[in-house]
């Protein structure tokens, strides 16, 4: 096979999820005339913004052959803390002290918390050799528990108009969450394709032993990756709370599964080293389009779950079939 041919077949497999998405869109456009409109397109993009933030972080983690099951709970905790700080601040009864937070302060505190929870995940994984599945499973439960403790099980609502802008605002005819997701995607693409740490991420997922021998600081890279995943989950939490004007203690339940589905549909290998952020974006759009299309067609809620599962399976089968041809 010549170099040109190799390049050609590689880029073809890259476009497989794009092709799947196009087929899905064409089918839906035939079935309903409400699907292919600019308004509905923006609608879908706004809905998937949260999943894109989470699944981009998940992609980085999965590329190192890891997994992060805690993103849904981290999202809930960070959105609750952001909303709580914004609305109530911190009260320190000892000194009769009250610390209020500005919008920026509250959001940054939420993101920082996500970052730290991610660091904790990475630390448990690298320092104590806890398998990522177990470490983040533990964090899933712990973060949900802290969310319940912090909110006492009640939603934190009425967060104000300026906060609502993050999730419900529009700029130049496009919803704000879409800009946020776009920035996240572009930064992640830049990191994975153009920076040293991006190459390290792929190297570790491809062959951790070899990466170690070639002098890569594996612990540092892994902790960074989980920290980014945590911060992005927190960003998703801020968007969710802003869209609902309320931080829900049960927000984000099973979001990790949607994120993993987006990563897998996008062609990233769960064993690490192979895949891309663009693929995940395609995967997230496929899931979003599917959710939207099934509701537009008023498919029974019972059948929707069957259809969604089948599409995930089908997408991966097509992807694998393309891979084995190389």
């Amino acid at each position: 096979m010549t170099v040109a041919n190799l390049k050609y077949s590689k880029s073809l497999s890259k476009f497989q999820s794009l092709i799947a998405l196009l087929i899905l869109c064409i089918v839906l456009s035939i079935l309903t005339d409400k699907f292919f409109t600019a308004e509905n397109g923006l609608n879908v993009l706004r809905q998937i913004a949260v999943n894109i933030c989470i699944s981009v972080g998940m992609t980085l983690v999965v590329l190192t052959a890891g997994i992060d099951l805690s993103v849904g709970s981290v999202l809930a905790l960070c959105s609750a803390v952001t909303a709580g700080l914004l609305k109530n601040g911190i009260e320190i009864p000892a000194g009769n002290l009250w610390i209020g937070f500005t919008l920026l302060g509250a959001v940054l505190a939420g993101l920082l918390l996500g970052f730290l929870l991610g660091c904790f995940n990475g630390f448990a994984i690298t320092k104590f050799n806890v398998p990522p599945f177990v470490a983040t499973l533990a964090m899933l439960t712990i973060a949900r528990g802290f969310t319940m403790l912090y909110t006492k099980g009640h939603p934190i609502s009425n967060l104000g108009d300026s906060f609502a802008f993050i999730g419900t605002g529009w700029l130049f005819g496009i919803p704000v969450p879409v800009y946020i997701a776009a920035v996240v995607v572009l930064v992640a693409v830049f990191i994975t394709q153009k920076t040293k740490i991006g190459r390290y991420i792929y190297a570790i997922g491809g062959n951790e032993q070899a990466a170690k021998l070639s002098g890569i600081n594996i612990k540092k890279v892994k902790i960074t990756v989980y920290a980014i995943a945590g911060a992005l989950a927190a960003l998703g939490g801020v968007i969710v709370a802003s869209r609902l004007d309320s931080a829900q203690p049960n927000a984000g339940i099973s979001y990790e599964l949607d994120a993993i589905a987006a990563v897998v549909i996008g062609g990233t290998s769960l064993s690490g080293g192979k895949g891309s952020v663009w693929g995940t974006v395609m995967g997230a759009i496929i899931i979003g389009v599917l959710n939207n299309g099934l509701v537009l067609l008023n498919v029974s809620p019972f059948w929707q779950q069957v259809v969604k599962g089948s599409v995930i399976l089908l997408a991966v089968i097509i992807d694998k079939a393309g891979e084995s041809k190389d």
Binding site: L244, Q248, N250, P301
Partner: peptide, 24 residues
């Protein structure tokens, strides 16, 4: 009744489902 959909008693799901229903 033009649409009957489930949102699992969840505020965010109801928001998303309703947005899609409003398109149709």
């Amino acid at each position: 009744m033009v649409a009957q959909q489930s949102a699992d008693f969840d505020r965010n799901k109801a928001l998303e489902v309703m947005e899609s229903i409003l398109q149709a």
